[in-house]
Amino acid sequence: MELLNGIGDFLGSLGTVYALLGAAVAVFLAGAGSAIGVGIAGQAASGVVSENPSLFAKVLIMQLLPGTQGLYGLIIGFVTLSKIGIIGGGAADLSASTGLLILMACLPIGIVGLISGKSQGKTAAASIGILAKRPDQFGKAMLFPAMVETYAILALLISFLAVSGIQV
């Protein structure tokens, strides 16, 4: 019985750890999504530039599109660290329930960032194919990967509102 109480007390004191885990999840998953996406688009960009170097600027913009998820994860990570006082001093003594709430609030941008980053990379690669054949269709080609961005922005919004709304 004492052992169970001890474990319960220990888990109850991990509020800050849960909150930090939330920040890590936001940065890690969204960053991984962007890395995968930028990598896929980068391969396609290299293929086109090796045959037509004049398209470098256009395909570079396409390659950068899946990079935003990583930035969104970074923003939520900063907001979370600032909220719990790791940045700016005066670390708050969080309860386990508050820490878990912050962890949950960070999940949307983490998970959606990972999935949308990879999907946006594949769409950007396909759009780079459009540029290879029709360089004058840059505007239309950019719209397709930009559509995927919508869902990353929605996830960023929810994570931001949720983290900001939790009372510490």
Partner: peptide, 17 residues
């Protein structure tokens, strides 16, 4: 299929000519 990303993009550029 993702292994072919570079190759397909290069082929698209070649198809233009």
């Amino acid at each position: 299929d993702l292994e072919y990303t570079y190759a397909v993009a290069r082929i698209r550029a070649l198809e233009a000519s």
